[in-house]
Amino acid sequence: MRLSEVMTRARLVLAAAALPALVLTACSGEPTADPSGGSTDTATAAAETPGEAASSPAPLPTGSITPSENLDAIAVSDADVPEITVPAPWAISSTQTKVLRDSSNPQVVGAEAKVTVNYVGVNGRTGTVFDSSFQRGKEATFSMGKGVITGFKNGLTGQKVGSRVLIGMTGADGYAQGNPQAGIEAGDSLVFVVDIIAASYDEATGEAVTPAAGLPTVTMTDGKPELTLPQGGINADQLVVQPLIKGPGAEITADSSITVKYRVWGAKSGKLIQEGWQPQTGKLSALINGWKTGLLGQTAGSRVMLIVPAADSYPNGEPSKGLEAGEGVVYVIDVLDVNAAAS
């Protein structure tokens, strides 16, 4: 089963360069079942509702299993590739998470984050492994936003990057309708051990930076930045880079692929020109000169204001949106993720 989703993205820049739509594939190979809620064939996929729990708890596959109230009966080795011992047949009464290896990393997995993990999945009814990214030798990368089975999403949200967690989930929070190819029946409780390797940010997180005098003022309203220009606007005759929050993540290089959300306003009028306040991904090298220069050296988790001259943004303006020819623009950008170029 491919753990993948097609991410339809808005254009990042209305000028010649834009962030393209991407396919984010979590893993190579063909896992039998995976936490994305996907499936190996069309028939199975049609029978499942990825990322959504059943309207009522699925029945246990056998009346002989008494659901456990906790994860105490599950044993996990401390090896790099964990071995999981489940006293099958086993089930759990409610989805739970237990931290096996804590992390000193303050970053936690957000509900909409893109995560990279290694994991082993065991069927509680049989005690056997039904999927393992460790065995495939390939980490899994996917978005938590949609398509992920409920138990996996709930089990990872709020956990620290760098930690190892044990997740026990009910059948309703796993594959509620079962997954025959993986040997999962409707109602089977599942056990996952997950190493959280990396995660994107949902929003800017880090140390606030005091802007230089005379620059536009940025305030957050309902989770989005709003811009207030000085009286008469500003002369965007040269590139200005003003970090507003300094994030703790990886640094952007010329070869980086970045995930951002952004908004852009006219530097004279203060009119909102482009709304891009949703995660979107692309290569820095494909973007306008104002971004290629202004974002270089910035870090994941940062919020950055760029004042970009017209020559490096919209040389001919955008009259239909109130941006005159020769008028520069102001971007506010949250850098959610930074990835090195593929080797």
Score class of each variant (00 low, 15 high):
Q96H: 07
A311Y: 12
V109I: 05
V240Y: 10
G151Y: 05
G155A: 07
S313D: 04
T44N: 14
K153Q: 11
V115R: 03
S343R: 13
A267C: 01
K246Y: 00
K283A: 15
A47H: 04
R9W: 05
S93G: 09
E203D: 11
L71G: 09
R164D: 03
A58Y: 07
A198I: 03
D173S: 13
S68D: 09
Q280D: 10
P279W: 13
P20V: 12
E251C: 04
V241H: 04
D131C: 10
T42P: 12
A198L: 04
I196P: 02
E318A: 07
K321L: 02
V330Q: 12
M144Y: 01
K114S: 00
R9V: 08
T62V: 03
K224F: 06
D131G: 15
A325S: 10
G145H: 12
T281W: 01
V240N: 06
T217K: 07
L229E: 02
P20L: 10
G266T: 02
N289E: 15
G187I: 06
P57E: 14
D72S: 08
I197N: 01
A311I: 15
L284N: 01
A75N: 15
A254H: 12
I74M: 15
A250F: 05
S143R: 06
T150L: 09
D255K: 05
L14V: 10
T97P: 01
A113P: 07
K153M: 01
L215Y: 05
V218R: 11
L244H: 04
G328W: 09
N339S: 07
V335Q: 02
E226W: 00
L272Q: 01
W277L: 08
P225K: 00
V76T: 03
P230W: 12
Q107A: 03
V165Q: 02
D80T: 14
G38L: 14
L19M: 14
G270K: 01
M220C: 00
L287D: 15
G121H: 06
A172D: 06
T228K: 09
K246S: 04
L215T: 09
I74L: 05
V260S: 02
A79C: 13
A204K: 11
L100E: 13
L215P: 14
W90C: 02
V117D: 06
Q135C: 00
G214W: 13
I92T: 14
E226H: 00
I196H: 05
G171K: 15
K283L: 12
A21S: 11
P309N: 13
Q181P: 15
